[in-house]
Every structure is written in C-alpha cells, then in structure tokens.
Amino acid sequence: MVEGKLIQTEKLVKIYPMGSSQITALDQVNLVFQAAEFAGLVGPSGSGKTTLLNIIGSLDAPTSGSVEVLGGKIENLSHREAAALRNRSIGFIFQTYNLLPVYTAYENVEFPLLLLKIPAPQRKKMAMDALDWVGLADRAGSRPSQLSGGESQRVAIARAIVKKPELVLADEPTANLDAKNSHHIMKTMVHLNESLQTTFIFATHDEKVMRYLKRKISLDDGRVEKDEIIKPEVGK
C-alpha cells in the first residue's frame, strides 16, 4: 500500500527514571522499516522490545531522538493526534488478546470501524471479510468467553487488520498459545502480510514466531545488536 519507508527511528533514546537512578530502556536506536515488512524484535527480557513497540505505536514518547511513523513525528503528536494515528493506521495485537468481553467476535472486529465512522453496510462487509481472513466467519456471533485462546487471538488479529492499517504491532502474540495455534496465527499473519502488504512488527522470544520472520532485529540492553534479513524457515 504505502511504498518505501514506513518507519524511521533516529538516535532514539528512552530513559525511565527509577527513584534516584535511571533505566535506559532504549539507547541510540536507529532503525528503518519499509512497507510490507515482516520483522521481529527479539532479545532477552528487559532488552527494550515492548518499549520500542510502544514508541512506534505512539503510545509513548521518546526521551530524545526522533521517530517518524508514516511521515509524522511521534514526539510532536498530541494525545488526540496520536489516537487518530493509531485509529487509522496502526493495529495492535496483545499477548492477552484483550477482546471486549461483552461484545461478540463480530462486534469486537467492528469496533475500530465504528471509531472510523465507516457507514454500516461497508462496515459489515469489512468486519465479515476480516473474520473470514482469520477463518472465523462462522464464529461471528460468539462472545470471547465462548472462544478458545487461539480463536480469541485470531479475532484480535481480525480486529487489528480490519481497517487495513499500514502497520500492525504484535507484542508476544503467541505467548499464551500452544504450538498448533501459534503456527496457525503466524500463518494467518504471513498471509495477510503478503496479500494486504501490511507491515508487521513483532516483539517475541518465541522460536516458533522467529521461524516466520523475514527480518530479525536483536535487542540487548536497549541497543540494536544485530539486524538481519533472513529467509523464513517455514514456507507459506
């Protein structure tokens, strides 16, 4: 969809104050992501993966340095503008699914479209399409409590991609899933990446996830240690 450079971080630093001392969660991170990438942030716990996703996703602001997402500087966005950016262009997938419990699968997927004020007939089609992509069209009327973990995460994926965002950020999306379900949702995302040209950025320790990545960025102690283009081990 978007050609060329999607995200660029320059000398990105994030420091958390911790009492009298400070924690440097990100240290001089320079990264560029192109459209339609399928990249993963890997590294030990505390290495800064979540922090980096947060900042890219405009949920957090850098301490210094700059982050450009879709042509806008994150550090300059107001709350409202950041919300608008997330609403339009960024989908989130969480480790714990985070579906809205009182709403059905369909309504959960429909929700971002309601915020975008998309007219009803079109909304219905888009939401059903998204559920179709993740193979859950027949569970549209189910509540989250009636879905398995794998199914819930697939609904969450449908919710993240229903508006066809340029970017999807997924923090440990498979951490609560077994191997079979993990592979299933990774395949789903690879498929969406290829058919919709959506950029995916993961944060993960999961070997199963890494096998699907086309680019692996290793973080350690807030610094980029390695940034490698890899050939996915698993076929499509």
């Binding site: 997330r86 339009r88 989130f92």
Partner: peptide
C-alpha cells in the same frame, strides 16, 4: 480498566 485501555490502544481518544 482493561476495556478502556484497549479502546485507547485501538485509537479512541480519551475525550471520546
């Protein structure tokens, strides 16, 4: 709390 957090992450403004 969780619901409101998710809605914010999805891009709903606090005022909304």
């Amino acid at each position: 709390y969780g619901e409101i957090g998710v809605r914010m992450a999805i891009g709903e403004a606090r005022g909304h």
